[in-house]
């Protein structure tokens, strides 16, 4: 009997330690990033670094405002395209899909998750970029936009990123919806609600935490994605007002220049990583707050 109690205690300890692993990992990454990035920020000047609009490392001008704005634009775009389609598709997978075609479709979404970013990048470059260029030129000729852009644009990157976050959102949302007990749905139908009403008023609210988890994972993937984005977004380090123009993202800035950077330039890139990291922290905090607010309702 005593040995059993001991095993219980011991395993509880093991679970606790495992749970601490993620804290340890974040702490380590924090230490490494901040130790390398903060000195460079201080040298450049925090305000100058964050609000500077010009990025010319060779002439010692390090302003990352365009990249901050770029990351915001592209991620927002990915959410606009990816989240509604992803959630609706998981509704289809969980509630509408005929049994015969479910398996191949499910396998296909899982396949989508395993395609390397570089492929999405080339696909975007060869297929989507020319379409967007055509689209931009049409709008330009119709006098709706000031510049036609050249296809490598915020819009293109948003589309491709929207595609890339689909499997993450579909995977988590669908399994969250399937986990909702069947009697919720049946009860709602029995009360005379239509199928759609039951799904959107009963099942999705019940699966809320899983759906939010999927969206957060998707946003994470969108902000962090680099290899595909740098191939299609143009990477111009300057501000722009049009979604048909190119821009550079924070991750893109790191990946593109890390290969050749030395000295202060390299540290400034790591500092870019710090900004990105703080960014992600802010997003997660606000999601946590939102969730808490929703729970209290």
């Amino acid at each position: 009997m005593r040995s059993k109690a001991w095993t219980e205690k011991f395993m509880q300890g093991v679970f606790f330690v495992a749970a601490c692993a993620s804290i340890l990992a974040v702490a380590l990454i924090c230490v490494f990033l901040f130790a390398n990035g903060i000195p460079a920020m201080r040298e450049i000047g925090f305000i100058k670094f964050l609000t500077g609009e010009i990025w010319r490392p060779n002439s010692e001008q390090f302003g990352i405002l365009p990249m901050i704005v770029g990351s915001l634009y592209v991620t927002a775009g990915a959410i606009i395209f990816g989240v509604p389609i992803g959630i609706l598709t998981s509704v289809f997978m969980a509630m509408y899909c005929p049994k015969q075609i479910y398996k191949p479709l499910k396998a296909a979404t899982e396949l989508l998750a395993g395609i390397p970013s570089v492929i999405y990048g080339f696909f975007g470059l060869v297929v989507v970029v020319p379409l967007i260029r055509e689209f931009g030129t049409t709008l330009y000729k119709a006098g709706l936009v000031k510049s036609p852009g050249n296809g490598n644009s915020i819009l293109t990157a948003s589309l491709i990123l929207g595609m890339m976050i689909l499997p993450t959102i579909i995977g988590t949302t669908e399994s969250a919806m399937r986990a909702v007990p069947a009697h919720y749905y049946e009860g709602s139908l029995a009360l005379g609600a239509t199928k759609e009403r039951s799904i959107f008023r009963v099942i999705i609210p019940a699966a809320k935490s899983g759906v939010i988890a999927g969206i957060v994972l998707g946003i994470g993937r969108a902000i962090g994605e680099t290899m595909a984005v740098i191939m299609i977004v143009g990477n111009q380090a300057r501000l722009t007002g049009s979604i048909l123009d190119g821009i550079r993202t924070l991750t893109g800035n790191i990946v593109i220049e890390m290969g050749y950077a030395t000295g202060l330039h390299r540290e400034a890139l790591i500092a870019t990583g710090v900004v990105l990291f703080v960014f992600i922290l802010i997003i997660n905090f606000s999601v946590a707050l939102l969730k808490r607010g929703a729970d209290h309702e």
């Binding site: 010009i54 080339f122 470059l125 970029v129 020319p130 050249n150 740098i230 380090a237 593109i256």
Partner: peptide, 22 residues
């Protein structure tokens, strides 16, 4: 600053081969 930037030879080549005015 309006120039597109890439860090890969193949992306450079693909972009130019897909865009007549590049």
């Amino acid at each position: 600053l309006d120039a597109q930037v890439t860090n890969s030879t193949s992306v450079m080549m693909t972009t130019v081969s897909e865009n007549e005015y590049a």
